Simulated scan of single mutants.
Amino acid sequence: MKSLQHFLLPFVAISILLFPIALNATSLAAVDNTGVQVQPMQQNGMTYLSGGIGEDEARAIEQAQGYNLHMTFAIGPENKYVPDVEVTVQNASGQTLLTLSDAGPLVYVQLPPGKYNVVATRNGEVRRDTAEVGSGAARKLVFHWNSDE
């Protein structure tokens, strides 16, 4: 019996160490693009993606490259994604670069390096945040409302 324990112990230890890697691999699953309608859009020279309704569409946006501002819109204690948000992105001098209606629940924007003010409005409730983007990792903003009303 002891020899069996000594034999199985390394396999159990390796399995435990690899478990987090296996969990992350599920998020890298292939996206079924046949039903995904997310296409890059442009406004005032800014390229953006807006959508994320459904698992495949959300994954397609999350895997998109080249967008340095990632915004997520959610409500309630369960952080349920919501798609009906008005978004305004302004540069540091207050010039509006992007205005979206019925945006989300995910919005990814490709911006020149700089500091930006973002205003997200849902059902009249306003949320504000600032983002400084550069050539490094994308800046992530999460806008949350307490309820669906």
Rank of each mutant, 00 (worst) to 15 (best):
N68Y: 06
Y48H: 01
L69D: 03
I61M: 08
M41S: 08
T72R: 06
F73P: 01
A60S: 14
Q63L: 10
A58S: 15
G76Q: 05
G52Y: 12
I75P: 00
Q65L: 04
N44R: 11
A58D: 10
D56W: 02
Q42L: 14
M46I: 15
I61D: 00
M41A: 12
A58P: 02
A64T: 10
M46T: 09
P40A: 09
E55C: 02
T72F: 00
A74I: 14
G76E: 05
G45I: 15
L69G: 00
M71R: 07
G54E: 12
N44C: 12
E57L: 01
P40N: 07
A74G: 02
A64I: 05
G52T: 07
Q65R: 10
I61W: 00
I61T: 03
A60K: 08
H70R: 03
I75M: 08
Y67G: 03
S50W: 06
N68Q: 05
I53V: 15
H70Y: 01
M71N: 08
E62S: 07
M71D: 05
Q42P: 11
N44L: 11
R59I: 00
Y48S: 01
M41L: 09
Y67R: 04
A58L: 09
G45R: 12
L49N: 07
S50P: 07
M41G: 00
A64Q: 09
F73H: 01
M71I: 07
G52C: 10
V38M: 00
Q63D: 02
E55M: 07
Q63T: 06
F73G: 00
